[in-house]
Design a protein around this nucleic acid. Sequence first.
DNA 1: CTGTTAGCGCGTTCAC
DNA 2: GTGAACGCGCTAACAG
Lengths: 342, 342
Amino acid sequence: MARSPASRGARAATLSDVARLAGVSVATASKALNGRNHVHAQTRARVLEAAQQLSFSPNSLARGLLAGRSGTVGLLTSDLVGRFSLPILMGAEDAFGAGQVSVFLCDARGDAIRERHHVQALVSRRVDGLIVVGSSTDPRPPLVEGVDVPVVYAYAPSEDPADLSIVPDNVGAGRMAVEHLIACGRTRIAHISGDRDYSAARDRVVGAEAALEAAGLEPVGEVAYGTWSEGWGRAAAGLVLDRHPELDAILCGSDQVARGVLDTLRERGRAVPEDVAVMGFDNWEVVATGSRPGLTSVDMNLEELGRTAARAMFDAIDNEHARGVQTTQCRVVIRGSTAPVA
Amino acid sequence: MARSPASRGARAATLSDVARLAGVSVATASKALNGRNHVHAQTRARVLEAAQQLSFSPNSLARGLLAGRSGTVGLLTSDLVGRFSLPILMGAEDAFGAGQVSVFLCDARGDAIRERHHVQALVSRRVDGLIVVGSSTDPRPPLVEGVDVPVVYAYAPSEDPADLSIVPDNVGAGRMAVEHLIACGRTRIAHISGDRDYSAARDRVVGAEAALEAAGLEPVGEVAYGTWSEGWGRAAAGLVLDRHPELDAILCGSDQVARGVLDTLRERGRAVPEDVAVMGFDNWEVVATGSRPGLTSVDMNLEELGRTAARAMFDAIDNEHARGVQTTQCRVVIRGSTAPVA
DNA sequence: CTGTTAGCGCGTTCAC
DNA sequence: GTGAACGCGCTAACAG
């Protein structure tokens, strides 16, 4: 039963192995490897070399067990395939990756049962915190129970105002969009939005109308709600142009809608941006850069949102946690559809 | 120093807590909770209730430390933002999620230094296996060293033939594409591909040409290599149509290229699919379904690839691991650009 | 400066 | 059927 240097088939080296090879005790080896004081420089060197030689890698499980913290966090998404989760996830992974924490990724696929299952697994793995990423900006029910670690909701806020949620500033995005169009000299701005059932659509409209009013401008026609698709953009553009041929700009609820609008404008011989300026939301690269001309769009800064959520989680782990809904800034990315390229 | 029932601020319940509450020893509690035999039904019930009451969640760190397996795997991507990693990742997460293993996600962002850093962290966390997801199907250097757990390469194969790699069958995809066009009655098929530097582009061409030859057909013109963009598709379509107005189908290296081709065809008044059939590769939903008509495309089945990689990793953990490059099947998704909708 | 001791939470022998 | 004891790998106390 005595521990042999190398047990079954190249088992990972342990601290005892290192200590034995260096001719010291495990405690000394531990101190040496962790850069603690009270260890002779020469001894430290011997230990380090032994560790190197055995390609020793400290067992985080044992360390975590002892420390009470695992150095891991859970990232729980409800819709990984959707295009919004990914950048958030990247931002979070980025913020964590810089430190010493690793990220557990779970996709609940919008299923509450599966979500509970994943939460249970994460709790069992003693994650130090949890980020819950929603698939739309509509509020979602909070995690049910038994979660004793800090939770931050990203993109979709929690319905419980006592929770901390980080969401993009859609109202601000709508405002910035209109302000950009005005800065481009447009005054007759129509608005073809997306699905009215989404708060993202409604919030952007709120911001856009506020900006129009602040500039003393009237909207051109009613806001046209529909779906988040190219097809809707094509159809709606036709209707709006029939009714308001005098318009000089169309603000679109998303980049996809904008692509459809661009198609219809080209078919009708309206020049973009000279005659009509067009812009969208989301700044979805493949959609926004593939069009002719390139599509000006409001970037929701989702990666930054992910980073913010991660930092908020760090703060919540250390100190006490903040509460309420916090928004992150968006930014306008200018392309040819609103301003002629230089 | 005696363990108090509830230490500092609602610390997570431990097995001892459960045992004490149920009035049994930790050993009995363990057996009861794990469904082992040799425990009285009534005792088991008491333990279960105690666990419930304390919302006890077994500490996976301790369990993993003891068992020698952590029940976790690492998913190492080099380009999470790229559109190919995500479905693979989803498939893998899906295959693992069904079991008891959790997934560590790491994005190396194409940086070798960062990759080593992540691998080191994963080894330290004692993952039971590792899936390395590449961003293109070109071979990549194998993980450097010191990884004693099974590694499966997905999408991008390892340069070392002794490693196990799972990649999409691009040659088969090219073949299937041409076979579909032939089945639609086309005989004069041009090929506008993507970036020649990508093996995916070259492999698809190989498969396409093989299928043409098998059917006794000649390609229409040379394969036009360029970039994976809509702009290239638009430009190349113009050139090809000028030189070969007689063509009745254009096979495109990707969906984006195909979108550009569709644009040019519409501008020139060539009807799709009546006059010219068009198809692409990748079946990228937003691109393929947004066009008029919808774009027929070869789906690379990346989610299935991810599941396959996950299963291969399971096998590698249990038994000994397979070697070499293994391919997964693709499938044609038919839309309006090759066949009129019913 | 170094070594010995004592657990972190759990599963698994082996006595009773 | 139940419980006491041991150890997974590591770090934080103390003792020398």
